[in-house]
Each structure stands twice: as C-alpha cells, then as structure tokens.
Design a binder for these strands. Sequence first.
DNA 1: CGTGAAAGTTTGATTGT
DNA 2: ACAATCAAACTTTCACG
Lengths: 161, 161
Amino acid sequence: MPESPPPRLDEIDVRLLDLLQQDAGRTLHDLGGQVGLSPSAVQRRLARYRRDGLIARQVAVLDPHRFGPTVLAVVLVTLARESFELHRAFAARMRADPQVQQCHRVAGPWDYVVVLAARSMRDCSRLGDRLFKADDNIRRYETLMVFDTVKTGLALPLPAP
Amino acid sequence: MPESPPPRLDEIDVRLLDLLQQDAGRTLHDLGGQVGLSPSAVQRRLARYRRDGLIARQVAVLDPHRFGPTVLAVVLVTLARESFELHRAFAARMRADPQVQQCHRVAGPWDYVVVLAARSMRDCSRLGDRLFKADDNIRRYETLMVFDTVKTGLALPLPAP
DNA sequence: CGTGAAAGTTTGATTGT
DNA sequence: ACAATCAAACTTTCACG
C-alpha cells in the first residue's frame, strides 16, 4: 500500500486551504478575490486538492446549543486484554455509534480517548454504560464531563510553503 | 441574554441535517431526492436552519495524512490557581493558537482537555512547552500522544422528531 | 493563468394544496 | 403554512488563447 508523497504547496495553496477550513461555503469568485486569482485558477486548485485527497470532505457543523440540551464527555479507556482483534472490535464499535464523535488510540496507561455527544446527562450515563461498562474487555474508564467548549474544530496547522 | 427555544424539527429536518453533517457539498436537487422534496422546498429549510443558527458553519475537513507527517496529542491540564480571570486568560490563549484544535473545560481533577495538532513530534513537544510548561499557573499536565485516529468529526446525534 | 461561453445550481415570485 | 413549478441570476466548469 504505497503512500503518495505530500504534494508541494505554494503560499496561495496554504491560504486557500486555510480559508476553506474556516468556511467552505464561499464562491470561487470570493476565494479568488482573497488570494488574488481568477475564479477558474481557484477552481483548478480546488480540483487538485480533491484529486490528491487533501480535502477529505465538506461538512456542515451544527451548533450543539440550538438543539436543546447537549452534553459532551471525554472518556479515557483502558482495555483489559490487548490483541489486534480486540482493538479492531473496539474501534469498529466506536465507529458504528453515532453518539461517538471522536475516538483516538493513544500512548501511555490509557488506550483510547473517546468523545461522546449525548442529549442529556442521563443519556450520556446510559451511553457510557452501554459502550464501556457492558464491555468485559475494558479494565477501567474515566468520564470527564464537558462543562464548556472553549474551542472546537478539525482545522490543521498547514506546513509553511 | 435570552436563549431562543430549540426549533421543532420534523423527520425530514433530521434527515436533512444528518445528510449535511456527513456531506455538505450536495446540491439542493440531490438532497431533495434523498428526502423526497423539491429543490426549493429543501432550500427553504436550509435557509431556516441558517437563520436559526442550527448550522454554525460549513467547513472543509483536510486529511492529516496527506500533508506529510501530522502528529495529534490530547493534553489533560489542571490550573494551579482558579479564578474567573485566570480561566479567561487560559481559554483566550487556546483559542488564539492555530495548533490548538479543540479545548474543553471539564469536571473533576483535570480542568481542561486540549487537542493539539503539530507537524512533528518535536513541534508537538515545543508546543506543549510553550502552551503549558511556560505557564506558571498550570499545576500539572499530561500529554497523550495519538497513535491512530479511529474516528473523527463533529457530528451531533439529533433529537428524535 | 485568464477569458468567455455552456452547463448546472440557487434563488425568488407565483400558484396550488 | 408548506410544497411544486418555472424563469432569472448566479456559480461552476471547461475549451481555448
């Protein structure tokens, strides 16, 4: 499985990608105005980003507070026994659940950091029970309830050109 | 500061919003086909979502692996002294740094969970030093290096209609 | 890379349910 | 109040210079 080399980006690429990370709803004309390029030049670059897989996807970010109460939690998890298959099974379960926002395998005493999104404290508690308490391959887990989200997003710092 | 009540959503709203959370690049025509509505009916609903602030923003999600090495870390942080102003200052610093992807205030012995994105292990280490080690109001912090991202996103589970 | 024409998409007025 | 249709405005796309 060959890894394609990272495409070289000039300064305009970096500025375009940063603009798109902030707001992907702009027109080619707008983007061109920001970076000093014609709409079609911008379009050619965007097409390249998609072809090269630089832009994985384009999503709408919903505001949690406008859907009635929303509860977030960060859960630290350590498995009881480790094997390729057990990790695979755990990861598959995380991916399959719409209430699991994010799941990262990490180094150190904890194996995973999982971010949960629930409709209420009770919902969140039941979710934790279902995902972690009911799994007999989980040695221990700790739930950190989120009081306040200071910053959110998936933006990457781009390499300098 | 009055909180507007959560707008009631019918089943089509929930399906539309879920589609948009997965892929906001589709046309009104496509979306209409998925939920059985005409493009303009879809458009009126989307306009309402934006007016009501349900859709906070629309962003491009970049693929970390295509930009050369990218290192993620989850950092658990506890402040030394707590006050409204000290928390404000810390939050402002997190918001201002482009390498801070996410920052949540949490309950329990840890005060914050911070997600960092860096260009290399060394970059990540220096970032941690700058953000946390150099801050004399931080009692302790623990860095959990991310081995593998099992799932990522900001999708919310929507309330049943 | 820019231009401009063709294709496709969004928008808004109108009408009907 | 909400949905469908149609035409106008805008946006994206693509061949060419």
